[in-house]
Structure formats: C-alpha cells, structure tokens
C-alpha cells in the first residue's frame, strides 16, 4: 500500500475538521448548523470514496458487463443525506424560535440572559 493512494481520504479529513471546527468554535447558532452540514457532507464524500472502483462506472446495469462502482455506499449516503437535511431543518427551526425568545442567536448572549433570570 502506498501513501499516495490515500490522499483522497485525507482531503475528506481536512474538510471534516473544518466542519467540526466551525461547530465547536462559533457561538452563532446558525453558523453551527452550517458547520454541522459541512461535517456531514465530508463524511458523505468519505463513503462515496469507499465505493469508487478504478475503471468502474455508475452502478446501472448494462448489456456488456463492465466493472461497476460499489452501490452500497451510495444507498447509505442517500439515506444519510436525508437524515442530514432533516436535522438541519429542525436545528434551524429551533434557532428561529430561540431568536424569538431571546432576541439573539449568539450563544454567550443567550447564556447571559439565562443566568440572570
């Protein structure tokens, strides 16, 4: 195994870490959700990279047998994308409500208000 064959995964890791960084570092609730999305999308890329086969084509069966890329990760990621968008929708809805209740979507300002009440 050569190190070079792994560069694809490393790009994914970098993306993943950017996403995670945004989630942990930013105090803005919507930014956090954006970060979560980046984090998740990078994991999707990880899965799809697993499925790729050198010289393979999309897994739609054709007359002449060729080598196909692995369909299973595709299926999993279809499901995971849906889960991701569902989480996003719910998270954003919560953020909107929080804005309604506190007038801000900055985490530390919310904490201040909570501790005073």
């Amino acid at each position: 195994m050569e190190i070079f064959g792994l560069y694809n995964y490393w790009v994914v890791v970098v993306l993943m870490m950017i996403g995670l960084y945004v989630v942990v570092a930013s105090g803005n609730l919507i930014k956090k959700i954006v970060g979560l999305n980046i984090f998740q999308t990078s994991v999707f890329i990880l899965y799809i990279s697993i499925g790729k086969l050198k010289g393979g084509t999309a897994p739609i069966l054709m007359e002449d047998p060729a080598s196909y890329s692995n369909p299973l990760p595709h299926v999993l990621i279809l499901t995971a994308i849906v889960v991701g968008v569902a989480t996003t929708a719910l998270g954003l809805a919560l953020a909107v409500r929080i804005y309604g209740a506190y007038g801000t979507i900055e985490e530390d300002e919310i904490e201040e208000q909570e501790s005073t009440t």
Binding site: T41, I48, L53, T57, L78, I81, G84, V85
Partner: peptide, 15 residues
C-alpha cells in the same frame, strides 16, 4: 466523478 450519480442528484437537490 466518483460514479455516484444517484447521490449527486440528491446532494444537488437537497444540499
């Protein structure tokens, strides 16, 4: 590029 046409379709529409 990685042959996942179905996924690409979904990601474009959803993401």
């Amino acid at each position: 590029v990685m042959d996942a046409v179905d996924v690409a379709f979904t990601e474009a529409a959803v993401g």
